[in-house]
Design a protein around this nucleic acid. Structure first.
Length: 930
DNA sequence: GCGATCACG
DNA sequence: GACGTACGTGATCGCA
């Protein structure tokens, strides 16, 4: 290890490694080595931090000397002074213990000293080195956020919190302790420290300590003149505990004269040996940082460029297929491979209207090809005037598709796509029914819902440390964005073939994990078979009466204009009613109304609950705004936007369902969202009248009644609830009757309403705050209700506690069908985040099981209808409701099939102990059918 | 691109 | 003792 003198130009970095490991362990997401599950999260955090400090610090802050300092053993000289010192510390967590030796190994791999000394804490070594370097005029950065080190801060010595990327100097110390660094020890000896079990003086905190020191200067002076203290209680405390304070001071005072074994000059930075470092990082299986380190070494010319480990990506290897012979070759090789990656390129994101521009296939890593079919711009060899230039030479679309069709439809060749529903729709519109299929997005979702996203770029980065060419780089963005058919063929090939390549690699990597993680059944029975079902629903779309919407829109607009006049009059000025900012200024500024809650960004909230409060107090403007907002929302989001969403070819509206969007396994609906069409108000309900059946047909709406509460009854095994459902009772009334000990007969509707809110609250992971908010009562009352509820239904509390316990231990929860939702914040130190995760843990199994059930029903439905020779088409899903269109004269038979399939959907996988009730109706419009 | 708001289950 | 909360979504608007 090299040596370098310490002088004014030196900059010593001292890493408080032991403290860092604990902090990293708790702050960073848990990570375990893929091959054997060894926990390595803290090691990864440590390596990232070291690399950043050593490589990325440029200029004046670059370290000249560097060391990682560790605690050694748990017994130090402080235990002789005070046996209870740090005696309250728990044993380090199970998952952290194996990481201690690894972090020392990491330091050495980075060519850093890993220093420790028996009988001393890391802090004492840090103090000693820091003072030695300071004495020679060097600057010192202590990488730590431990307050026990803040006593060392001077103009030369600063602290760095790498996690928050914050530097701590005198000012920050003053902010925290109310005194400068030189008096931090005094404050700590008075205030004590519960985490280190330093006693201090009882009842004196940091604030009081700082104030006392301001007056008396030092702890010694203070204790000597304790009699002078005016407040009797404080005086007595300090007199009684003088010795304890003196001991505390010795505990917190760092030893700046530790007999260190390595002289500070020997801590000179040293370039790590590339092979040693890379070997270590690879052994840990840290893909991203290994790649970063390797790239830096390669750029510095320290090591040869390599493609060790996985087969690297080679975009040059991709083929652009422009003649039929080559296409036939590739198709033959695809048959041989048996599994291929497939991706479509189109000229828009709307798979119902776009044109197919090209197809790419992958048969092995780096063996991928792009078949351009609809490119209109010439590639580089062509002319430069886009108006009279000929299109580039391509295989004729019809010929290529005819050649691809047998392959894509061959039952012996598995086609793998990423978000494949999109591509399947495009192929269908080109006469090809692709099957069988696998979808890497859905495989990732079944494995890791809640852990991370499932987009291809993110997955490629995560598993291969490879960044696919961003779409923006090929097509640009904003005003200058071009459609894919205008992308030159060489660039298009790199982009498109890479997508198929990545997709196939993801499949190879991820598919085996379905078994390991025991989610094969979820993927194979709930998600995979739903793809073609949803694709059909999206393709059918639903008929929407444009003229009706248009009239409604005009009506809304007229009435909005009325409200606008009234609002300007009430406010005494014209303003933009759609701007919460301007509205807040007028209500709470000019008009001087009392503001209620504030938004996250600190502005006064003007949401409906606030305006309702103000309106109830008799103010005019808030009510006008409320009425205007209702109409404005309905008009812009529904009556206007839905007209634009009507497909000009089909005259119907085609939504798109997202299968990996909602963490619980629910679907979500976009472009347009047809899962949030209004129904709760009279006004909004009119919009559902625009959703109509074709002539001679009817709309059927079928929805599960109380499915989530029924699942709660089953999953938590609550006899009272199960009986109620089995006997067909009014569940909310029954709950109210039990809780408030009143007969159902002649019950006050308010009482039932409260019970209903509680029932919903239970499903959401109840809190007194939430319930109080919902019911407009105070928190104490809400809390009493919850107590009463748990007293009557102790099984629910038990279920909740067990679910939370399971989630804490396993970091996931499961639906009744085995779908996992990962909850990474279950053990977060942040109370609010942890509480949030706990509520998710309660809710997800219920919401998710309901989602699983309706998915099963949807998968069964087309076959069940066809078996009865019924022509009904399933059009929409709204979480607990399915919407169909069928010939008028088949309505009755269709309803019977739908109800049966929905009711029996859990079977045979799950035999519920409660019946599932399905309401179904047929009518001309969705409004009437629901 | 983000926060505030509000539509649904 | 304070914190910040009901669960899950998507679209539109204003505003930086």
């Amino acid at each position: 290890m090299p040596t370098a003198p310490i002088n004014e130009d030196s900059h010593l970095y001292l890493i408080d490694a032991s403290a860092y490991i604990f902090r990293a362990f708790h702050a960073l997401p848990p990570l375990s080595r893929a091959s054997d599950g060894l926990p390595v999260g803290a090691v990864a955090g440590f390596c990232n931090m070291l690399w950043k400090l050593l490589e990325e610090l440029k200029g004046d802050d670059r370290p000249t000397h560097f060391a990682c300092i560790f605690d050694k053993g748990s017994y130090t000289f402080r235990n002789d002074l005070y046996p209870d010192y740090k005696a309250n510390r728990d044993e380090p967590p199970e998952d952290l213990r194996p990481q201690f030796p690894l972090v020392r190994e990491a330091s050495i791999a980075f060519a850093c000293h890993a220093l420790e000394l028996e009988g001393y804490e890391a802090d004492d070594l840090i103090a000693t080195y820091a003072r030695q370097a300071e004495a020679k005029g060097a600057r010192v950065t202590i990488v730590s956020s431990d307050k026990d080190l803040m006593q060392l801060v001077t103009d030369k010595i600063t602290m760095l919190d790498t996690m928050k990327n914050k530097t701590l100097g005198r000012d920050e110390v003053f902010e925290k302790f109310g005194v400068g660094p030189e008096k931090v020890v005094d404050v700590q000896s008075l205030a004590g420290d519960s985490t280190d079990n330093v006693p201090g003086a009882p009842g004196i905190g940091v604030k009081t300590a700082a104030q006392l020191l301001d007056e008396y200067g030092t702890v010694e002076e203070l204790l000597a003149r304790a009699e002078e203290i005016k407040q009797p209680k404080r005086r007595q405390t300090l007199i009684d505990h003088a010795d304890q304070v003196r001991i505390s001071k010795k505990l917190v005072q760092l030893d700046e004269n530790v007999p260190v074994e390595v002289p500070v000059e020997d801590l000179a930075v040293c370039d790590p040996d590339p092979k040693t470092l890379i070997d270590f990082l690879e052994k840990m299986e840290f893909r991203t940082i290994t790649r970063r380190v390797r790239e830096t070494f390669e750029a510095d010319g320290v090591i040869e460029e390599t493609t060790a480990g996985d087969i690297g990506f080679d975009r040059e290897a991709y083929t652009c297929i422009r003649d039929f012979k080559t296409l036939e070759d590739w198709i033959a090789r695809a048959y041989e491979a048996g599994v291929i990656g497939v991706d479509c390129e189109t000229n828009s994101l709307d798979c119902q209207t776009c044109d197919l521009v090209g197809v790419s296939i992958a048969i092995a890593p780096n063996e991928a090809a792009y078949i351009p079919l609809g490119h209109i711009d010439p590639d580089h060899s062509g002319g430069d005037d886009m108006f009279d230039a000929a299109p580039p030479r391509q295989v004729r679309k019809e010929d290529a598709l005819a050649a691809l069709k047998p392959l894509l439809e061959d039952p012996a060749v598995l086609k793998v796509g990423q978000n494949f529903k999109y591509d399947l729709t495009v192929f269908h519109r080109n006469g090809i029914e692709v099957a069988p299929v696998d979808d890497t997005m859905l495989i990732s979702f079944a494995l890791h819902a809640g852990m991370h996203g499932h987009g291809m770029d993110e997955l490629s980065e995560r598993y291969f440390s490879h960044t696919p060419i961003p779409f923006k780089e090929v097509c640009g963005s904003g005003q200058k964005q071009i459609t894919f058919d205008r992308v030159p063929l060489d660039k298009a090939t790199e982009y498109a073939a890479e997508d198929a390549d990545v997709t196939l690699r993801l499949w190879t990597y991820l598919k085996p994990y379905l078994h390991k993680e025991k989610v094969t059944t979820v993927y194979e029975t709930l998600d995979r078979p739903l793809i073609p079902v949803l694709a059909d629903m999206e393709r059918h779309g639903i008929k929407v009466d444009r003229d009706f919407l248009s009239r409604l829109s005009a009506d809304f607009q007229q009435r909005m204009a009325g409200y606008e006049d009234a609002a300007y009059k009430a406010a005494g000025t014209e303003f933009n009613m759609g701007s919460p900012k301007q509205l807040g200024d007028i209500l709470f500024g000019e008009m001087g109304l009392p503001g209620g809650k504030k938004t996250k960004s600190g502005a006064w909230s003007t949401d409906a609950s606030q305006l309702e409060t103000l309106a109830a107090e008799g103010h005019e403007l808030p009510q006008i705004i409320l009425d205007w907002r209702t109409l404005s929302k309905l008009r812009s989001t529904y009556t206007e936007a839905l007209q634009d969403a009507i497909n000009p070819n089909t005259k119907r509206v085609h939504t798109s369902y997202s299968m990996a969007g909602a963490q619980t396994g629910r679907l979500s609906s976009t472009d347009p969202n047809l899962q949030n069409i209004p129904i709760r108000t009279e006004e909004g309900r009119k919009i559902r009248e625009a959703f109509i059946a074709e002539d001679g047909n009817v709309i059927i709406s079928a929805d599960y009644s109380q499915i989530e509460l029924r699942l709660l009854a089953h999953i938590a095994n609550i006899d009272a609830l199960k009986t109620a459902f089995n006997e067909g009772l009014d569940i909310h009334a029954m709950t109210a009757s039990e809780m408030f000990d009143t007969p159902i007969e002649g019950m006050d509707p308010m009482v039932r309403r409260r019970a209903k809110a509680i029932n919903f609250g239970i499903i959401y992971g109840i809190s007194a705050f939430g319930l109080a908010n919902q019911l407009g009562i105070d928190r104490g009352e809400a809390s009493d209700y919850i107590k009463a509820y748990f007293q009557k239904f102790p099984g629910i509390r038990k279920y909740m506690d067990e679910t939370k316990e399971f989630a804490k231990d396993n970091l996931y929860v499961q639906t009744a069908f085995g779908r996992k939702l990962h909850l990474k914040d279950m053990n977060s130190k942040n109370g609010a985040m942890r509480a949030f995760s706990e509520r998710q843990a309660i809710n997800a199994p219920i919401q998710g099981s309901a989602a699983d059930i309706i998915k099963r029903a949807m998968i069964e439905m087309p076959g069940a209808l066809a078996a009865k020779k019924l022509d009904a088409k399933m059009l929409l899903q709204v979480h607990d409701e399915l919407v169909f269109e069928c010939p008028e004269d088949q309505a009755e038979d269709t309803i019977a099939v739908i109800r049966r399939v929905m009711q029996k959907a859990p079977l045979p996988a799950l035999d519920l102990s409660v019946p599932l009730d399905v309401d179904a109706n047929a009518a001309k419009t969705w409004a009437e059918a629901h």
